[in-house]
Every structure is written in structure tokens, then in C-alpha cells.
Nucleic acid binder design. Structure first.
Length: 512
RNA sequence: GCACAGUUCGUCUAGGGGUUAGGACGUAUCCCUUUCACGGAUAAGACACGGGUUCGAUUCCCGUACCGUGUACCA
């Protein structure tokens, strides 16, 4: 019970890391940190055909971005190195052979085609999902049906083979899951899983069990999609004599599409216009770039906070958590059991929260970086002013550019609906009067003086201040709504405001 | 099909044998405000269904329905 907490996140480098994978990594990390444990990253690259160049680097960068720190990994090493399964290849065979020796596994010489045709034959005979199991294995070419001499000869001749687990006929296999309690499976429903593939690589099942044992993993924390194969793993622990060292299992609820139709998928996310990847992923094969949350403007704090609440809660009404607060309050007992639908709205709300919590100078620097991408610049001071004016109305840093486009560019067009309602003769007179009054404030203009001047102008013309405001806004920003107009005027300065007034007055037609 | 999970407002969830079933996002209305936004307030909105057990069930048990996962020499 006092076993040291050692957890691993074990992705396979087959492409961009899915956002669900990030949550799994997060839960692993939090459980490790909460218990003064060790966070391990292991690369499960046993399927050479699916290996994708760049995927490992991607995983590394994505985890770093959200702030998950690794204690042991292929990139930094550790006392159980190597952490890449392809580099541990030889290890697995030893255990597979041990299983054979003890009668818990066997050589199978059937080619994939042979098994395929057998499967089709069974399907034709009405078997819904044919399995290589305790019944069918006796009709196949393997060390259970062949004589010892035949097996020896085939091996000596270098014939390709797989090693399959010999699942017992009738046995209840009990799996204990920390989230779900005891789950019982019957062995007759399990098939003789391939443990070692014909290319000499282990399958997930063998590699996973062997490595978790050797790396002294205390908790296996993975998605619920693994629950059905958990009995195979339990069987392996038993057969290898490691039952007492078997880790605790936690099968996390799945993250679903917003309408609940299956696991959150890329296709679906695309349709609804949100990313499934933490950071941008370049698919070289398809020559496509998938955008990530980072590029979409989400803060890492947002992702951590949003993701952790998909399947866990503190039991209090607190919803905003920093990583450190999560480490302090995370608990296995409060992880939920049911699948959770992905709600991008909530993520946006978190982002807005974290944006508001970010200091203006920092936000200004981020804005400046965005501006630079469009080949524009601004002084840090001006940028901070932009941030101040717009902060309460944006969700993402990139929104400063769109929400506040009138701070950067004079309007070319004007909101027609507003213009048709508000653009009248008194307004034009106010604007001209205002422009003239502004002449004396070329040097500097503050929001409150901008307001005073406008007030005086309306007073002298006998026009109500409020009746003219939206029209003034329209002339200066092109829109009927937006940030505090006096702040905008102060930001733009008398000169620019005058130019905009001239343009509006000469462009818009007065309505009666 | 079979196996295994799961099911509280639209969504994330709290709760748990007796509650006005609580919060957050979203939605609506109002207030604030020159507009919009922010903020504040208010409102609408849920225990899948059927049987038990019980004085009493949303909570415990059993079934049904629905949803999901799995059913590869993929992870």
C-alpha cells in the first residue's frame, strides 16, 4: 500500500496527440504530483507501420505547452531506460517464451491470410465475431495442433510465427478498477490475443504489461476504451507471476462529441469549428495543417482548467484552478464514471477568464506579436492602451485586432442600419463643430477632455448629448457599438478624429 | 449480435432514503452605461422508464430503454 506512486503516459507516435490524450496525461500528472510520485512518458511505437515522423517531438512540445513536466522519458532518460518500446524489443520475446514454456501461450504459424479465410468461413457459418480462441485454435496451425517435431522444424526453417496467449476455457477474470470497482469478464469471451507479432514486435498487451511491471508502475491511468482488454492484462500479470505487483487500474471516462455521438473525433470537431489538437499538427502525408488550441488563441491555463473538469470536480463550487491548486486538490475518488461531452463554449469562458487575469503589459506584448505577424507595429505604451480599452470585450488575444480594428484603421464603410437612422443634419453640425473645437487639442487629448469638448459642442448647438452619441461613434469607428468612445477618441488623437469626421461627412448622406 | 461500462437542467456537474434537488457555461429579462461588452440581479431549465424494498425512492435492488466503448499480427 505504501508503494511509491509511479504513473506513465504512454502515447503512440502515430500523429498529433488528441486532446483526450492530453487530459489522460494531465490526470496522470496530477496523481503523480499529488502523491509525490513520478511521472513517466513511454513511447509505444510497437506498430512500425503506423509510425509517423515528428509525432514524438509533437508529444513532447504539446505536454510542455500545457505545463506537464516529465520525470522520466525517452528525451531525458531515467533509471528504467529505454523508454521507447521499439528499443526494448528483445525484452518482450523473453517473456513470451516464458509463457510458452509454462503452457500459457503458444506458437501460431497461420499467416494473416489463413486466419482471414478461416474468419470468413466462420462468418459464413453464422458466427458474428469469429475469434481465435479455445475452440478455433484447435483447427489452426499452431504448437497446440502440430507435433513438437513439426514445430521445431518450422522454427528452424525460419517460418514466420506469432505467439498467442492461451486463454483459459472457463474462468471469471476479475479486474479491479479504482473508478468503477470490480468488473468481471468471462474468459470464454476473450480471444487468444497475439502477444508477439510476426515481425518480432510485441503487441500493446504484452509490451504494456511487461513495461509497467519492469518500470514499477503503480497506477495505470488510461481511457475507458481499454477496459475491455483489461482482463487480458490481468491474465498476463497472473501468468507471469506478477499478480502481487499488479498496478491499480483507472479507466477514465471518455470525452465525447458535443452531441454525444461517439468519442470526440477530428471530423466532428472540424465541422463545429474547434481544434482537437493541443498545438498545430502538420500532416506531411496529406500535406495538411491541423490547427491547435495554442494557435487558436487558447492559453495553456485554459486548457488545463477546462480539461481537468471533464470528468473530475473538487466537490466544492470552485471552478477556477491553477495547476498548483489542482495538484493540491486532485483526488482519484472524485473522478467521474460517465462520458463527458465536449463543450467549446465553456473553454472560451475559461479563456476569457484567464485573459482578464493577465496583466496589461503582458497582454500588450502578445498583441504586439500578433500585430507583427501582420507587419504592423505599435509602441508598447500604445499597445497597453489598446489592451486597456478592449480587455473586457475579448476572449482571445487575437480578438484585439478584430474587435478593435477601428483603433488601427480608419473605417472605409459604415454600418448602414445605424447610418440610415442616425445620420441627420444636427449630427453633421455637431461633428463639424466638434472637429473645430478639437483643433486646440492637437498635442494631447484625454478621454475626459474629449467628452467635455463634445458636451460643449452639443450644448452650444442646442442638441442633446445622448441623441448624437451613436452617430459620432459611427463617424469615428464605422460601427454602432464598441468600446468607450471617449477612450477611443483619446487614443486616436484630434488629428485622426478630424480626418475621420471629414471622411464620414463627405461619404454619408444625410437623412431627414 | 455478444461483452463491458454509463444515465441528475441543452452542456459540465453537486447531492443523496424525507432537500424549495445546489453551482457553473449557455439562453432570456432587468439594472448599470452614450452603445456594445464587463459586472450585478432575476428567470426558464434536470433526477430515462417500469417494477420492487420502504412509512417514504431521484438516491438501494432488479429489469427495460437509450447512449458509449470493445470485439485486429492498431494502440
Amino acid at each position: 500500500m505504501d508503494k511509491k506512486v509511479r504513473v506513465r503516459f504512454a502515447p503512440s507516435p502515430t500523429g498529433g496527440l488528441h486532446i483526450g490524450g492530453v487530459r489522460t496525461a494531465l490526470y496522470n500528472y496530477l496523481i503523480a504530483k499529488k502523491n509525490n510520485g513520478t511521472m513517466i512518458l513511454r513511447i509505444e511505437d510497437t506498430d512500425q507501420t503506423r509510425y509517423v515522423e515528428g509525432a514524438e517531438e509533437y508529444i513532447k512540445e504539446a505536454l510542455a505547452w500545457v505545463g506537464i513536466q516529465l520525470d522520466e522519458s525517452p528525451w531525458q532518460g531515467g533509471k528504467f531506460a529505454p523508454y521507447r518500446q521499439s528499443e526494448r524489443k528483445d525484452l518482450y520475446k523473453k517473456y513470451a517464451l516464458k509463457l510458452i514454456e509454462e503452457g500459457n501461450a503458444y506458437y501460431a504459424f497461420d499467416t494473416e491470410d489463413e486466419w482471414d479465410s478461416k474468419r470468413k468461413e466462420l462468418e459464413a457459418a453464422g458466427v458474428v465475431s469469429p475469434q481465435y480462441n479455445s475452440i478455433t485454435r484447435m483447427q489452426m496451425k499452431n504448437s497446440l495442433t502440430l507435433t513438437a517435431a513439426e514445430v521445431k522444424a518450422k522454427l528452424a526453417a525460419g517460418e514466420p510465427y506469432t505467439i498467442r496467449l492461451k486463454v483459459p476455457h472457463k474462468e471469471d477474470i476479475r479486474v479491479h478498477d479504482l473508478i468503477r470497482g470490480w468488473v468481471v469478464f468471462h474468459s470464454s469471451l476473450l480471444d487468444d490475443r497475439v502477444l508477439l507479432k510476426s515481425d518480432g514486435m510485441p503487441t500493446y498487451h504484452l509490451a504494456n504489461v511487461v513495461d509497467d511491471y519492469l518500470m514499477q508502475i503503480s497506477h495505470v491511468i488510461r481511457g475507458e476504451e481499454w477496459l475491455p482488454s483489461a482482463p487480458v492484462h490481468v491474465l498476463l500479470y497472473k501468468m507471469l507471476g506478477w499478480e502481487n505487483e499488479m498496478p491499480q487500474f483507472l479507466h477514465l471516462p471518455l470525452i465525447m462529441n458535443p452531441d454525444g455521438n461517439g468519442k470526440l473525433s477530428k471530423r466532428y470537431a472540424d465541422q463545429l469549428g474547434f481544434p482537437v489538437f493541443p498545438i498545430e499538427w502538420h500532416n506531411k502525408e496529406k500535406q495538411a495543417t491541423m490547427t491547435g488550441y495554442r494557435e487558436a488563441g487558447y492559453f495553456p491555463e485554459t486548457m488545463v482548467n477546462f480539461l481537468v473538469l471533464l470528468g473530475w470536480n473538487a466537490g466544492t463550487e470552485q471552478e477556477i484552478f491553477s495547476m498548483q491548486e489542482l495538484i493540491d486538490s486532485f483526488s482519484i475518488e472524485r473522478i467521474g464514471k460517465s462520458g463527458t461531452k465536449f463543450d467549446i463554449n465553456k473553454a472560451k469562458w475559461f479563456n476569457q477568464h484567464y485573459l482578464k487575469a493577465t496583466s496589461n503589459p503582458t497582454l500588450a506584448r502578445l498583441l504586439l506579436a500578433d500585430l507583427a505577424k501582420n507587419n504592423r507595429t505599435l509602441s508598447q505604451e500604445k499597445a497597453e492602451k489598446v489592451v486597456e480599452i478592449l480587455k473586457e470585450r475579448v476572449t482571445f488575444v487575437k480578438d484585439f485586432l478584430t474587435e478593435g480594428k477601428y483603433l488601427f484603421d480608419a473605417p472605409q464603410t459604415f454600418d448602414e442600419q445605424i447610418a440610415s437612422k442616425k445620420w441627420n443634419q444636427p449630427l453633421v453640425e455637431v461633428l463639424n463643430g466638434y472637429k473645430n473645437a478639437l483643433q486646440t487639442h492637437q498635442e494631447s487629448l484625454e478621454a475626459h477632455t474629449a467628452k467635455e469638448i463634445l458636451n460643449k459642442t452639443t450644448d452650444s448647438l442646442g442638441v442633446k448629448f445622448g441623441s448624437v452619441m451613436q452617430g459620432v461613434r459611427l463617424a469615428i469607428t464605422g460601427a454602432g457599438a464598441g468600446a468607450d468612445l471617449m477612450e477611443i477618441i483619446a487614443f486616436l488623437g484630434a488629428d485622426e478624429v478630424s480626418k475621420r469626421i471629414d471622411y464620414a461627412v463627405s461619404t454619408l448622406k444625410v437623412v431627414s
